[in-house]
Computed example of a mutant assay.
Amino acid sequence: MTTLPARVSGRPRIERRRHYGQYVAAGVLVVAALFLAKSLATNPRMQWPIMWHYLWNTHVVSGLVVTLVMTVVCQTAGTALGCQLAVMRLSRNRVLQATSGLYIWFFRGTPLLVQLIFWYNLAALFPTLGAGIPFTGIGFSVATNTLISGLVAGFLGFTLNEAAYMAEIVRSGISAVDPGQREAALSAGMTETRCMRRIVLPQAMRVIVPPTANQAINLLKATSLVAFISGGDLLTNIQDIYANNFAVIPLLVTASVWYLIVVSVASVGQRYLERHVGRGFTTFNDAPEQARDKREAAG
């Protein structure tokens, strides 16, 4: 909203310019949203009773639990592996740089669904997997199909794929830290590892946390891809149900409701986490609030 200074009785006054076009656009959007909501609410093909009936179904809730566990485990493992890859990418050792770069190039360059299907069909390439001591005959082996289920393939695919993206996020965060911080720590007698852990990474967190939270939310939604390999997640269990009763639309709405609830809660947590790690720094969104506080303090 534009403000124009004016003087009334010798004192400055702020005049606010009204933007009628915004009001018209907002009114059109509200009317369109109401018509859409009415159409969905009164459409008998939506079968709302079925949607509400299956919202707390045990099979649906168990799939939701698998989705949440997969998200937490894969994001945690992917972040840990991504940190290692980022450090390798920033290393002066060219072998480590090349290894990390090749890993990131491959897993970012191939579709996630292709990776999941590959891990699920690993038995076609290696019928058995095992380990042992070379030249001794001591070891064990197991059928790959027994070891790599749809759920295990999902954990492998998401973790390895997430690590590639997290490596770039962590690398950009580390690169954003003033090089003088590292030089000062090393000149004070710190080792490279201690400097990275105590000086660089804590400052880089302000840059790393926001995209990491976005990655976690994207991963939560991407777990639905394991439905293609029967991974037992929320969408997989939803498909199991509507394959029997053919209520496709209401059950997809049930899945969407759960995804929206979980993503909304995660978004609120993301907001508080970003504010926590960004303490002491002024952001674009916080600047107007701080300016308003200063005006109110000045009377």
Rank of each mutant, 00 (worst) to 15 (best):
Q290Y: 05
A164C: 12
I50G: 03
G154R: 02
D240H: 00
G130S: 07
G231L: 04
K221L: 08
L34N: 02
G137E: 13
A266N: 06
T58Y: 12
A216P: 01
S9Q: 09
F246R: 07
G63W: 11
I229K: 00
Y242M: 08
G109T: 06
D286T: 13
L81M: 15
W105F: 08
V209G: 02
V66H: 09
R206F: 00
L116F: 04
N237Y: 13
W105N: 06
P179E: 15
N57Y: 09
F118S: 00
V69I: 15
V200R: 13
T254Q: 10
S91V: 11
G269M: 10
Q84I: 14
T146G: 13
G269V: 01
A32S: 14
N218M: 11
Y272L: 10
R292Q: 14
L251P: 01
L96T: 06
A124R: 15
G109S: 07
A80N: 08
N43H: 06
G189N: 08
T71S: 12
F228C: 02
L273V: 08
L102F: 15
L234G: 02
V61L: 14
T144S: 03
V152N: 02
N145C: 03
D240Q: 07
A298W: 00
V24Y: 06
A167E: 06
A291L: 12
N244T: 15
